[in-house]
Amino acid sequence: MNQENKDCYVVDGKLALPYQYFAGRTGSRFLISLRDKKKIFGVKCNKCDKVFVPPRQTCERCFENISNNWVELSDTGEIVNFSVVRYEGKHLPRKPPFVLALIKLGGADTPMTHIVEGIEPEKVEVGMKVKATFSDEPTNTILDLDHFEPV
């Protein structure tokens, strides 16, 4: 079919999906400490003798409400495992390649996921010691703890 295309054109559109994310009470306190005190807090279950970070309202083992047992954790920890992100996405916090690692902080029993910077991705190793760097610009997100760097 030989059709003229003078009438064809492309309209720019934008699909916008507004939503609200509520961090919850426990999550809020965690984020506020990162933002205002530049300190990482976890919650401890006295019964199970476990410290969880990121904090949770109930113990995953005994279902006890532990949301008031806040404990301060060290800002250094050990890489338990990691992954190199090599694709670009608008939702991702960094340009690829960057390292997302599971980091077990001093005083915690669970690892938390965060970005590791200041080292080439190829040189990251399990067992490596890393230290938290906090953000100067408040974001009200986990990125108030900007990233971890090798000690």
């Binding site: 009438d7 064809c8 054109y9 492309v10 309209v11 720019d12 559109g13 934008k14 699909l15 916008a16 999906l17 507004p18 939503y19 609200q20 994310y21 509520f22 961090a23 919850g24 009470r25 999550g27 809020s28 984020l31 506020i32 009200n140 997100t141």
Partner: peptide, 17 residues
């Protein structure tokens, strides 16, 4: 203080007429 973030996921689209 409770943290609530209002976000807008925005996806650029092109619509060919």
């Amino acid at each position: 203080e409770l943290i609530m973030l209002k976000k807008i996921i925005s996806v650029d689209m092109k619509y060919s007429t």
